[in-house]
Simulated scan of single mutants.
Amino acid sequence: MKSWLKKPMLFGVIAGSAFVLPTTIFAEANAEELEGTMIELEEGMNHNETIENAQQYIEEHLSDSFAGLYIDREEKQTGVVVLMFTESIADEHRQALEGFAEQPEDIEIREVDYTEEQLIEKQREIDQDGFEYDDFSIYYTGVDIIDGKVEVGIDPLNEENIQFLQDKYGVELIDVVEGEQATTLEMTTMDTEMDGSMETTDESAQQEEERNFFQKIVDAIKGWFS
Rank of each mutant, 00 (worst) to 15 (best):
M1D: 11
M9Y: 15
G12F: 14
G12R: 08
V13D: 12
V13A: 13
I14D: 12
A15D: 14
S17F: 06
S17D: 10
A18E: 02
A18L: 04
F19G: 04
F19P: 00
T24W: 03
T24K: 07
F26E: 01
A29T: 07
N30F: 03
N30C: 02
A31R: 09
E32C: 02
L34C: 04
G36L: 11
M38R: 14
I39N: 14
E43Y: 03
E43I: 05
G44W: 14
H47T: 10
N48Q: 10
T50W: 09
E52T: 15
N53M: 12
N53V: 02
Q55H: 09
Q56K: 15
I58P: 01
H61G: 05
H61F: 11
L62R: 05
S63V: 12
D64N: 11
F66I: 05
L69M: 11
Y70S: 00
Y70P: 05
Y70K: 07
Y70A: 01
D72S: 12
R73Q: 10
E74R: 13
E75P: 00
K76S: 07
K76Y: 13
T78N: 06
G79N: 04
G79A: 09
V80R: 03
V81F: 07
M84E: 04
F85N: 02
F85Y: 01
T86A: 05
S88E: 12
Q95I: 08
L97C: 05
E98I: 08
G99F: 09
F100K: 13
E102H: 10
E102Y: 14
Q103V: 07
P104F: 11
E105L: 14
I107A: 08
R110M: 13
E111D: 13
E111Q: 13
V112H: 05
D113K: 15
Y114M: 08
Q118N: 00
L119H: 03
I120D: 05
E121Q: 15
Q123D: 09
E125Y: 01
I126G: 02
G130W: 06
F131H: 07
E132V: 10
E132R: 10
D135V: 00
D135K: 06
S137H: 12
Y140G: 06
Y140F: 15
T141A: 01
D144C: 08
D144I: 01
I145D: 05
I145V: 08
D147S: 02
G148T: 03
K149C: 07
K149F: 07
V150L: 04
E151Y: 01
G153C: 05
D155F: 02
P156S: 02
L157W: 13
L157E: 14
N158G: 02
N158S: 03
E160G: 07
N161S: 11
Q163W: 05
F164T: 06
Q166Y: 06
K168L: 12
G170Q: 09
G170H: 03
V177R: 12
E178Q: 15
E180D: 14
T183K: 09
T184E: 15
E186L: 13
M187A: 07
M190F: 14
M190P: 00
T192W: 13
T192S: 10
E193A: 10
M194N: 09
T200K: 11
T200D: 10
T200Y: 00
S204L: 12
S204H: 07
A205M: 13
Q206G: 01
Q207Y: 07
Q207A: 08
E210P: 00
R211K: 15
N212S: 14
F213C: 03
Q215M: 09
Q215K: 13
K216M: 15
I217P: 09
V218S: 08
V218C: 10
A220I: 02
A220E: 08
F225S: 07
